[in-house]
Design a protein around this nucleic acid. Structure first.
Lengths: 212, 212
DNA sequence: ACCTGAACACCGTTCAAGT
DNA sequence: ACCTGAACACCGTTCAAGT
């Protein structure tokens, strides 16, 4: 078990109940802790108390701790989606936009490793119907599919099932992100960032329209 | 490596403490539990008691629970390495051998999702020096690099840094395995198995020697 | 409806003691 | 040297009770 030094969070204790949207506050606070100190440090007592609320208040809004994590993961997919769309649009789509999406994806993961792991680490069962986890994940994936379709229309990507192509690209980029987070790329110069650039070139060649 | 000299002594004390190699037995039992019921069900009391040993006996051999998991992960990498070598050799290397390695990799992960997650799930800090975790992981990765080098010699793969090429392939296959485990491929017909076959084709095109 | 506070079962870990 | 058994701090969860 970990030793905790002392009381390092000294927030103002509230006398009243938490008036507004406690559910949202709980998710935000949990996400903050996960980003800052890792999911291993997320504890229900601490999470509640830093909002001036008892540790059991959470059960009014979530079935259990896994449900809270699922909500955090859902928020993560929404944020990831935004990052991907931004990258795509700011680079004007096409080949450059697609490459930028890959880079943005890896950066999202590396920026908050533990947060990313909550989204993919098996802490949350994927078949959770509540809180729209699957919908948000599907929506983020949809950005990828759409980018593929547009590139197909522009003659940049071969005519093949765009969904399967998107899954393939997703897996590759996800793998780079995961290996980077795991420290498995510590011997690689430039780490995950360098590898995604290398990969973008190789991936492009694999999905480009064949020369005729 | 298998049999210990203690076996040779005629007087073996029964009814004593646990017989020979408790350390190995603890790792094997933990691996079994993880495979069967998931790492979330691995508990020190249960793990010890199913070997007829107290829950604290473990601390004579491991610093903490994370160290036990690291040992399980190390064992996992050794097994994965074996699977990869088998696939490569049984298909006679080359393009078919390489594709078979990818399939074997994904199958290894899908066969024991929780086991695979112990190897990559962030439960074990990657910079653990003990128990040869890094060495085994590097050894498994080395199989991939070697396969790339051989294909380069055979003119099948472009002349490029084989280690970076191997990282790229590793990431892609790892990503497919991870997405499969996460249930993110549940809408994909054929799941991870189908995706790795699809990916093998695309990956090959990306790393093949360019037409001149 | 929303939250508290005590209580429960359990877990990882420590440590003095046993053989 | 190797292991036990009691003990400790902590956590997730339940539930009767409060407002």
């Amino acid at each position: 078990m970990r030793r905790r030094p002392a009381e390092l969070t000294s927030r103002k204790p509230r006398k009243q109940y938490h008036h507004g949207d406690l559910r949202r506050a709980l998710v935000a606070e949990a996400a903050r802790t996960i980003q800052a100190r890792g999911v291993g440090h997320l504890t229900l007592p601490a999470n509640g108390e830093s909002l001036g609320v008892s540790r059991t208040a959470l059960y009014r809004h979530f079935a259990d701790k896994a449900a809270l994590l699922a909500a955090v993961a859902t928020e993560g997919f929404a944020q990831l989606r935004r990052d991907l769309v931004d990258a795509w649009e700011q680079h004007g789509g096409g080949r450059e936009g697609f490459d930028a999406m890959g880079v943005a994806y890896v950066r999202f993961a590396v920026k908050g490793p533990s947060y990313y792991r909550v989204m993919f680490g098996g802490l949350v069962e994927a078949d959770r119907a509540d809180c729209g986890l699957q919908e948000q994940a599907a929506s983020a994936f949809g950005v990828l599919v759409e980018a593929i379709v547009q590139q197909q229309k522009a003659g940049l990507v071969r005519e093949d099932d765009p969904v399967q192509l998107a899954r393939y690209i997703w897996a590759a980029v996800h793998g780079i992100a995961m290996l980077g987070i795991d420290g498995q790329l510590r011997d690689a110069e430039g780490g995950a960032e360098a590898l995604i650039h290398f990969a973008n070139e190789r991936l492009r060649l694999g999905i480009a329209t064949p020369p005729r």
